[in-house]
Design a protein around this nucleic acid. Structure first.
Length: 952
RNA sequence: GGGCAGUUAGUUCAGUUGGUUAGAACGCUUCCUUGACAUGGAAGAGGUCAGAGGUUCGACUCCUCUACUGCCCACCA
């Protein structure tokens, strides 16, 4: 019946989570076939309030950011999912139908890398296995390891509907991907083109702009001489000019010398007076000994470097653009794995960085190397493997983003998407306004293969573009327009039987797969069954809130909104809560590679999931800086709650009428402390509700923490102790009832934050209650205990308990100050003029005596000194204790004088404020009143101090 | 280069639309193994609210500038 002395978090957590899940509590209420959470059935009916006080009738739905299948739960996830779970549990308790769809994405590149690494240990590559076998390996890996993170989410207490768990490679979601791709293609929003993209030579795949992480790198800016070619002096002496070049050269500056092998021009600014005469001339590209023209382009910044740029259209996005304008040849000098190819002459086969060294060396030998400046510049790195990205010309699939972004912007203008906190709105809209096309093809195998088929017949017939092979990303010598090209390509939802043009059956599917985000951006509706017209789609789309970290706004949030608008005609969610980033105490991002990460699972093992959750939430008002000790706050709090409830259960052992019904209380029958705690409870519930409604989880958690610890444990329970000992059985009974009532409500308020411990305790409360059989089976199905009513509000009780707290604190202060042993029972005198205050102390005699450990408490109107006494003064009263033989009068005088000085200063300050004529004129009345009250209080205090001082 | 945050007690942070003598947690000092809890209780010390101006009767709060820290974005070779 009673709680164990020690809270066993591990046991409790496993017990309740499996019960909740097996009973189907995580499923939406509307899944009626399960017969669960039926409000009106005798099982689920809550006696004290009706469930469903929420005016919101739509279901509460959130989409979990799919964690990556290769990942494990890190602190960022723990925070994110704690927040989501709190919101879901809170809304569920408010009676809303709730749905939380969990799942993971297939993390194309990351997962493939993991499996390839495994193969590498057996000295095998994916090519050795071939596509089909390799994919089998990946699936096998996924079956074995892919559920780690979802298991960990359970440990955290996440109340996801696991029966609806999804994976981006599921058949249903794959179908959604194909549908989305084909639809966009048919609308002309997907095209295939030859562009400079971010290429990872290690993963050998294209990356989107978002997947290229730019980092500042201290590199070199190399100055290199390109010999000029005077007209008429050309091919005969190719090598000759180098030696006697004299002034006949120009100097270009570059950070990537190895790309010079692919230079097809040199550019200057058209208005640069230094170089105007060169435009139209030719220079020799050293090492390759090619003749290349000097052209003029606005893009060149005359201020940077030498003002002359080498143009490599196949290896730099700017140069690509310049090359496009000037119809330059594009010479690709690199292989997909970052080596120099056959276009690189003597450097063929060298690694790009090795080639750089060799080229610089060779240039130096020929006297063409001028100098190296140290240069800090941003270099793209693969976000998965951190390899330096190579801007690379290749044929890829793209999504035309502008039309999609415009819809999203319009929706935002109509107020359909709101960011919390508001400042992220600008980040979001700026990105949308400057959006660039999205490269969605990846040259890997793990993922959704692009639903496009190439007809060999058509391509052979020359109808096709210059694509000759599928796997070779060969050089394209002329830029293509961004118009979708149908040549030899058939895009379809399923594999076509034959080519619609030539009826050939020789069709080969495009080997590329889609960017993982191309499936993730459909998540809010693909997980509900789209493109099928399922009941779930109808009922749960659009969803309610999206909770995520800032780094994912572009990757995911913006794209989901665009997809929602495009495919569903409606934004996928209207509120977007961006929470802080979890960092190590040093301020760095937590990451395993830095060795500064804290494993949430370890924290759960050590302190419990509730402790982890509560600590994180309390810290989450902005970026969360973590260290192990920070979790002690939550652990200590959980322990406090446990023990307070244990105490309550012990105190009500003989209580027969324990109930959660608020109607059982008649104010006139209640003691002041009981009236006070009920009033506070109501007040705090409202505050917590207010905070939760606008994602103020940290404030809500902090407010609850202090209410439970300070108000309930430190004061109410302490006040209740003497009341329970009361000889008046009515007082005792009433106190027991209030203890039970308030504590049960606290459990419900706490439940969204600390689900496990509250369930464990609440079940004991349910056993104890007379009407326990009519309570719901689980606290997670109980009603949220705030209904907006103000039935317990009690200003008088709050004021009275305020006096009591002051008096007790005042006495305790005196005890400590004069080092009086706790066992010494003192005599104390309260001096107060107002009758109301006197009555309060008369009513509180027993309580003050207990809490202040007094033998005797007197309450008088006028102060009469009897021997050595010391006092603490408050505006409404003074409290004295006798200190025969302990008090040092001189010390006490000094202290009083100091107090008097302080109080005088305070009064002066107020007078200055109130005395200002403009203040009286302009300040609001309430403020004026407040200031006057303050002044009164200060004056009373001053009188007290002076009276005391005079008595010495 | 552009943008956005932050700067409050020894440390980590609160501080709601300007209006209590600026708060909490941890740490620190003193005391307490009083039958819910030492993962506890009581009391206390500790702050020119980054700096400089401005608006105002009144600024931690609003505005401007400066300094430092952090984050995001950006094609300057």
């Amino acid at each position: 019946m009673d709680l164990d002395k020690q809270y066993n978090s591990k046991e409790v957590e496993t017990k309740w989570y499996s019960l909740w899940e097996s009973k189907g509590y995580f499923r939406p209420q509307s899944d009626e076939k399960r017969g669960l959470r039926a409000r009106d059935s005798s099982l689920g009916k809550v006696p004290h309030e009706s469930l469903g006080t929420s005016p919101e009738r739509r279901p509460y739905v959130i989409v979990i950011p799919p964690p990556n299948v290769t990942g494990i739960l890190h602190m960022g996830h723990a925070l994110n999912n704690s927040i989501q779970d709190i919101l879901v549990r809170w809304n569920r308790m408010k009676g809303r139908d709730t749905l939380w769809v969990p799942g993971v994405d297939h993390a194309g590149i990351a997962t493939q890398n993991v499996v390839e690494k495994k193969l590498a240990k057996e000295k095998k590559t994916r090519w050795d296995l071939g596509r089909e076998k390799f994919l089998k390996e990946v699936w096998k890996w996924k079956e074995e390891h892919g559920s780690t993170i979802t298991r960990q989410l359970r440990r955290l207490g996440a109340s996801c509907d696991w029966s609806r768990e999804r994976f981006t490679m599921d058949e249903g979601l794959s179908k959604a991907v194909r549908e989305a791709f084909v639809t966009l293609y048919e609308k002309g929003l997907i095209y295939r083109g030859n562009y400079i993209i971010n290429w990872c030579p290690r993963c050998e795949t294209a990356l989107s702009d978002e997947e290229a992480a730019h980092k500042d790198v201290q590199g070199g800016l190399y100055h290199i001489k390109y010999p000029c070619l005077p007209a008429g002096r050309l091919s005969s002496e190719v090598r000759g000019p180098y030696e006697k070049m004299g002034e006949d050269h120009i100097v270009v500056a570059t950070t990537r010398p190895e790309t010079m092998l692919g230079d097809t021009a040199v550019a200057v600014h058209p208005d640069d007076p230094r170089y105007k005469h060169l435009i139209g001339q030719k220079v020799i590209l050293p090492l390759m000994e090619r003749e290349i023209p000097v052209i003029a382009d606005e893009l060149v910044d005359p201020e940077f470097g030498t003002g002359i740029v080498k143009v490599t259209p196949a290896h730099d996005p700017n140069d690509f653009a310049i090359g496009h304008r000037h119809k330059l040849e594009q010479v690709n000098v690199m292989t997909p794995d970052g080596k120099i190819n056959e276009n690189g002459g003597a450097y063929k086969g060298m690694d790009r960085f090795e080639a750089r060294k060799k080229i610089l060396h060779d240039l130096e030998e020929r006297g063409l190397f001028v100098r190296r400046d140290s240069h800090l510049h941003a270099v793209g790195h693969c976000y998965r493997c951190d390899t330096v990205i190579e801007p690379y010309l290749s044929k890829q699939w793209f999504v035309k983003m502008q039309p999609l972004a415009e819809k999203a912007l319009k929706a935002h203008e109509q107020g359909k998407t709101v960011f919390y906190p508001d400042r992220w709105t600008k980040v979001y809209t700026n990105w949308l306004r400057n959006i660039r096309d999205w490269c969605i093809s990846r040259q890997i195998w793990w993922g959704h293969q692009i639903p496009a088929w190439h007809c060999s017949q058509c391509q052979a017939a020359g109808l096709a573009s210059r694509t000759s092979g599928l796997d070779k990303r060969e050089i394209q010598t002329s830029p293509e327009s961004r118009v979708p090209s149908n040549d030899g390509i058939i895009v379809a939802r399923e594999k076509p039987g034959k080519c619609p043009r030539c009826s050939s059956k020789d069709l080969v599917q495009d080997p590329d797969v889609l960017d993982t985000w191309f499936s993730s951006w459909l998540w809010p509706f693909s997980t509900l069954g789209w493109p099928e017209k399922t009941d779930d789609v109808k009922k749960f789309y659009p969803t309610s809130d999206l909770i995520t970290a800032p780094e994912i706004i572009f990757f995911w949030v913006a794209r989901m909104i665009m997809a929602g608008l495009e495919f569903m005609g409606e934004v996928p969610f209207s509120r977007i809560y961006i929470h802080g980033t979890v960092r190590a105490a040093t301020g760095l991002k937590m990451s395993k590679s830095l060795g500064n990460s804290i494993d949430p699972l370890e924290v759960i093992e050590e302190m419990g999931a509730d402790a982890l959750r509560y600590s994180m939430i309390m810290l989450s008002s902005q970026d969360v800086f973590l260290s192990r000790e920070k979790f002690e706050v939550g652990r200590n709090f959980a322990n406090k709650v446990w023990n307070a409830c244990r105490f309550v259960l012990m105190q009500i052992a003989d209580l027969k009428e324990a109930s959660a019904d608020p109607k059982q209380f008649e104010r006139s029958a209640l003691s002041l402390p009981s009236r006070w705690i009920l009033s506070r409870l109501e007040e705090k519930s409202a505050g917590i509700e207010r905070h939760l409604a606008q994602f103020g989880l940290a404030q809500a958690a902090t407010e609850l923490y202090h209410f439970v610890w300070d108000d309930f444990c430190d004061w109410y329970i302490e006040l209740a102790k003497p009341m329970i000992q009361s000889e008046d059985p009515a007082v005792k009974l009433q106190t027991q009832k209030v203890l039970f009532f308030v504590c049960e409500r606290i459990l419900r308020l706490l439940h969204p934050f600390v689900p496990f411990i509250t369930e464990e305790i609440w079940q004991k409360f349910k056993e104890r209650a007379v009407d326990g059989k009519t309570w719901p089976e689980s606290i997670m199905l109980a009603a949220w205990p705030h209904d907006g009513k103000k039935q317990f509000h009690d200003a008088a009780a709050q004021k009275a308990v305020g006096f009591l707290q002051d008096a007790v604190t005042g006495i305790r202060d005196l005890r400590v100050r004069f080092q009086i042993a706790p066992t010494d029972k003192l005599k104390a005198v309260v001096v107060c003029k107002e009758k109301g205050t006197q009555e309060v102390f008369k009513a509180f005699e027993r309580e003050v005596k207990t809490l202040g450990r007094l033998a005797e408490l007197q309450c008088v109107r006028e102060f009469q000194k009897k021997g050595a006494m010391a006092a603490n003064s408050f505006a409404a009263f003074d409290v004295f204790i006798s200190l025969e033989g302990i008090l040092d009068p001189e010390e006490e005088k000094k202290r009083l004088q100091k107090k008097i000085r302080e109080t005088e200063q305070w009064i002066e300050q107020i007078l200055k404020k109130v005395g200002n004529p403009s203040f009286a004129e302009k300040a609001p009345k309430e403020i004026l009143e407040k200031e006057k009250e303050k002044l009164e209080d200060a004056k009373k205090l001053l009188v007290s101090y002076k009276t005391q001082l005079a008595s010495f």
